[in-house]
Design a protein around this nucleic acid. Sequence first.
DNA 1: TCTGGGGTCCTAGGACCC
DNA 2: TCTGGGGTCCTAGGACCC
Length: 420
Amino acid sequence: MYALVDCNNFYCSCERLFNPMLEGKPVIVLSNNDGCAIARSEEAKALGISMGTPAFMIREIVKNHDVKVFSSNYTLYGDMSDRVMQTLAGFVSRLEIYSIDEAFLDMHNMEHTNLLKLGIQIRRTVIKNTGIPVCVGIAPTKTLAKMANRYAKKRWREVGVHWAANQDLIDEMLAATEVGNIWGIGHQYALFLKTNGFKTALDFVGAPEEWVRVNMSVVGQRLYNELKGIPAIKWQFEARTKKNICTSRSFGSLLTDKALILEAACNYTANCALKLRQQNSCAREVIFFLQTNPHRTEDKQYMMSIKLKLESATNNTPELIKYVSKGFELIYKPGFNYLKCGVIVDSLVPESEVQYSMFSDVDDGKTKRVNSAIDSINRNIGKETVRFAVQGFEKKYRLKAEMLSHRYSTNINELIKVTR
DNA sequence: TCTGGGGTCCTAGGACCC
DNA sequence: TCTGGGGTCCTAGGACCC
């Protein structure tokens, strides 16, 4: 058996934890740049605010119903996530952290225990230790555990736990789940399945296997097996080394100034380089992209990306900046209102396996020491204490975060204040 | 005024090899 | 009459996830 533990409206729950006045009130958390709603409390959902709605489109609802709005505070959410995961780790021998607010728990060889009771105990303990409410779904495969979790949320709200312990319970759950709500079925497949007469997950498992294979490839077939109770998705206990790393952001406002955009690009590159060093990888390719705002139909549009192959793989900040600047010069065109740019480092190889170019004269030991010194200072004293001149200091392009809560649990200056 | 950011996996098709 | 067959590697693009 697999259990999937998922935090309820995670970001909103984190905000509430340090601000009990928010209890019972509609709360939403916005994406980067205060763009759109990415987390909603139950009260906010009831007001009809749906996932991903742009902030400017719900301004009226927010005003009329006194919705409490927050910018995303990833420092806080990340720390709360760690605490939840630590508590979960106490219940099983192995867990897979699937995302910031979800984990799969390995419940094999526990079939003899009453897993419903265990689920309830997990839920109680997490809320006691961290204050974060969670739901638990337990089933024979990951996909069914996901579904059981969703079913717990919808059908067994009070208990918050569902154990699909036998085929009857599984069928009941499959029948109650529309194909579009199956983990792994997105927009396209949901549409395709519905057009072909498959409405619920139960309908889908009744489809001929060959038809699934032909029309939905091996991905579909795996899913099909998972829903039939045959595990087809492997455990992933260890964090994988990433195969590509991306840093991209929308600017706080539209930019036309070339120097400013380049400065942003250099900062994003420095961030990619840092992430590379953290996982001991080097990149053989770097992609730089730049775009205007497609929603502003009155603006001339321009979208371009460029891929540069590196002479030899590196994670050295100035070296990567050199390539990105070159890419920038090649695709930047004046006269547009730019919204966003980004850097992707790709074709990653382990640092220990880097092949040097025949003509390279880089003193690798030296640059490595410089970079680790910089990383260490930045880690200990504060992000970007040491930076390269091209990264600038003003950050005029910086994103908006006008409703940011405090980093209550990680910053000594932002602790919660108790007054009497 | 105004629409996020960061990933993974799979497939088809082209280039290339013998 | 009528132009092989089998394989690998790479890439772009699509679908999905939170």
